[in-house]
């Protein structure tokens, strides 16, 4: 049988004391403006019935991932983030 952990009266009292602080003060960022608090900020939906235009040729260009050559390298903030193995886009790990 698993030995039972007791929760001390002191722990319970401390938890209750922490809970006495209004919830809004525990939140990071503080209280939100009324509407946002009541309804939230909704992200854009991704279903609609509009066409996406022909100015971007995403659907028409030749498959750029076919064959053996992958011409893209990660080139965003990973070049800034310093990891234990060094800064920048790390040398590709084989495997």
């Amino acid at each position: 049988m698993i030995s039972k952990t007791e929760i001390s009266a002191a722990t319970l009292a401390a938890a209750l004391a922490l809970l006495a602080v209004p919830a809004s003060a525990q939140q990071t960022g503080g209280a939100k403006a009324g509407k946002e608090k009541c309804y939230g900020v909704a992200l854009k939906g991704q279903n609609d019935c509009a066409s996406k235009g022909v100015n971007s040729c995403a659907g028409q260009s030749k498959a750029d991932y076919e064959g053996t050559a992958w011409k893209y390298v990660p080139a965003g903030t990973c070049e800034t983030i310093k990891t234990p193995k060094g800064t920048g886009s790390l040398a590709p790990i084989k495997g």
Partner: peptide
């Protein structure tokens, strides 16, 4: 949703609103 703040701030002279059903097929939230 980008217009929600403006729409909810005051009564709008719009006869009705329409939404795409699939965008509301999550369970809850904003």
């Amino acid at each position: 949703p980008e217009h929600f703040a403006a729409i909810s701030a005051a009564r709008q002279p719009a006869g009705f609103f329409e939404v795409h059903a699939e965008n509301y097929m999550g369970a809850g939230g904003a």
